[in-house]
Design a protein around this nucleic acid. Sequence first.
DNA 1: CCTTGTTAGTTACAAAATTAACAGTCACGA
DNA 2: TCGTGACTGTTAATTTTGTAACTAACAAGG
Lengths: 144, 144
Amino acid sequence: MLHLERFLPYRLNRVAEAVSDEIRPIYKGLHGMNRPEWRVLVALAHIGPATATALCRHSAQHKTKVSRAVVALEKRRWITRDNDPADRRSEILQLNAAGHAAYRQIAGPVADADAAIQAKLAPGDRAALEQGLAALERAMGLVD
Amino acid sequence: MLHLERFLPYRLNRVAEAVSDEIRPIYKGLHGMNRPEWRVLVALAHIGPATATALCRHSAQHKTKVSRAVVALEKRRWITRDNDPADRRSEILQLNAAGHAAYRQIAGPVADADAAIQAKLAPGDRAALEQGLAALERAMGLVD
DNA sequence: CCTTGTTAGTTACAAAATTAACAGTCACGA
DNA sequence: TCGTGACTGTTAATTTTGTAACTAACAAGG
């Protein structure tokens, strides 16, 4: 008999959803962004100028999501597109000043909310979560 | 600066998706079920006859998802609906023989896949994951 | 009994995700 | 240099999900 309470995908999905529910209102309330847009914004802020394919890898999203998110960010005038001299199929995307400003404005509260969630855990539990999560990421081939 | 690698919602979503990707082909391949249907099937197998509301609670899904999943399972002739003598708004749902058989057929491989994933973790990492996940579930108010 | 408010469940509509198809470009060997 | 196949990114079509409105039924107070 399958125990839902111990069933990994069920537990992970449920807890991931609960955590997302606390973060989403921040980037949604501040600029009406959805998750794909928020992730692309974060990815661009971190890795700087990048092609759409690189953003797919770094934001762990499908190319159609990234494509539409990039269009949306472009409409907000937060990113610029430039030709990629090395490959005419792709374009170099990067945040402009307004994009960086928007990122900074959102990243603070989001980081605070993340810290608040982790602060609810006892230090030992927090360390255990970190260890277990890191191990699972390795086991699923998501890192290294 | 927000570190994606340490950002809880991102990590949880990504790892939850990776784990789901290993489980989904089983219930999808065996009977073409989607996740809401699979969850309702599991819930019904566990708690026995139940109303849709009880299935919402136990499968952690919105009532529209449950409503549609129940219709789908009904079309497969896996569940029966009976009047609830205590409340004429609701109906008592339960698996019939075919439903139980389908559940058993799927639950085995699914449990195996879950075990296989956990087997990839070192015992200490597995224990850490369990501890951290349980703590997070409590912190998010998902249990107790 | 009648309100008034709440709950169970379905359905309709809108938003989002997945899939598939596509044009343009590249890389590499024949 | 000419295919052939693979890759980049967008768009279209289909499916899934989420939101809101709705019907029917309950519950409690007047």
